[in-house]
Design a protein around this nucleic acid. Sequence first.
DNA 1: GCTACCTTTCACAAAAACCAGTAAGGTCGC
DNA 2: GCGACCTTACTGGTTTTTGTGAAAGGTAGC
Lengths: 250, 250
Amino acid sequence: MTVPRAETEYVDRRSLHERIAADLRDDIMSGELAPGASLPSTARLKERFDASNATVQKALQLLKEEDLVVGRAGASVTVREHRRRTVAPAALSTADRWLTEAAKHGTHARSVLRDVAEVRPPADVRSALNLPVDGTALLRSQILLIDDEPAELVDCYYPLAIAEGTALMERRRIKGGTPALLAELGHSARRSVDRISAEIPTQEQYRSLRLTSSTPVLRTLRVVHGAGDSPVEVTVMVKAGHLYELRYEF
Amino acid sequence: MTVPRAETEYVDRRSLHERIAADLRDDIMSGELAPGASLPSTARLKERFDASNATVQKALQLLKEEDLVVGRAGASVTVREHRRRTVAPAALSTADRWLTEAAKHGTHARSVLRDVAEVRPPADVRSALNLPVDGTALLRSQILLIDDEPAELVDCYYPLAIAEGTALMERRRIKGGTPALLAELGHSARRSVDRISAEIPTQEQYRSLRLTSSTPVLRTLRVVHGAGDSPVEVTVMVKAGHLYELRYEF
DNA sequence: GCTACCTTTCACAAAAACCAGTAAGGTCGC
DNA sequence: GCGACCTTACTGGTTTTTGTGAAAGGTAGC
């Protein structure tokens, strides 16, 4: 019968090995533990976190599954090469720019068109498109693969008034990219607004992005405005948190 | 003795009630379930997720702890008012701008100076400041409170060459804000670069921000460049993921 | 080859997650 | 006020996870 005090006693409810992993992960991601460096030994970590051998091991197991560290029996657990993919909004704007960008870094990237359909978009997209509650839009759903690993989910929504009768409605890749096509149609982008948030992945996202443990996702809701500031395209991009970093300059 | 197939069988390893909470949370955050709306009944959720009564309740319990929903016995579990705080980079630049911004929205915000000290900054900050591995910088660590709830951790790092002998080194609030002071010192901001990532909170962050369940955090590493493009200030901002949304326009 | 240090693995107690079912009691439309 | 539907709470029982401690076995320097 423990009596929790209101303010003073605030505890982390995650399991011990998750907490240990969280702190070590931060040391790695912040660069405190650089790639190639060794983590403190199990004995040392036992001390630092006041945990048992196996619990520390389980924490390390999590980091291994995230491909952050490798352990060799007898030697030490070392930090792997893990540079996060930095992506600036300009590079984001089309999947194609993306692909060429990736090629420069020696990685193989490709996008797969998952679905093209007229759907009732989620409420936040709907309001960005100025649609009524029962309004529909054209959805082009893609998934980006880097070295054949799923890396990002991209859902592009277009107003039907714009998409109707164009190549956008066809279930195949747009040659030259959608921005070029939209520009041809007289809807070139004048202004873009990104809204970024960190989310806990849904089951769908978890499976599609092949996430491990409790990785968060980075969600970007992009509204592209055309002439007269009317919305031309709304894109929802969901990336695995540990793979990406967004870069904005101003 | 189950034989896991390599590619096809990829499963979500989170506990069932966490997965249920994740999907419901997405319905709420995307606006699918608007504030005031009722969630499906326990019986319906049991069906939808193929779970038992108690498991569904546990999922709902998580959402209640996040203040996303309220349940009244007999009636239904309804979505609470939860508008996320949207914050644009301009409004971010000083804690003071922040405070006046908050006042406009009828909320009470204040910042507490936690610490002022010369420290060896984390590696990513260090490299942004062009410091050697053993270099130090001045840290001004603050925490932002909104309605007396911790909302954001702000760590500002300044090169010693700039901070030395100025009010920055004193353990008290800067009148007029640090940007104004820096400008006076001849280090006005010419260019800023933000790098945004989603992270799993460390134990420190978890406790300081009073996080619940497995909420991620939104981390912004801002590098402010002055004349000659030399770094004048590096700020690390860590916000609770469910409270914030970043907005960038270009 | 020896030794110190390290990771890894195994056996086992305690805790929790989960299920099925039941029951108490609140809310709302009729 | 009645009944349908709802949230909440509790029981008992199985399975999985979390945690501990000790032992097995690899690595590297001497």
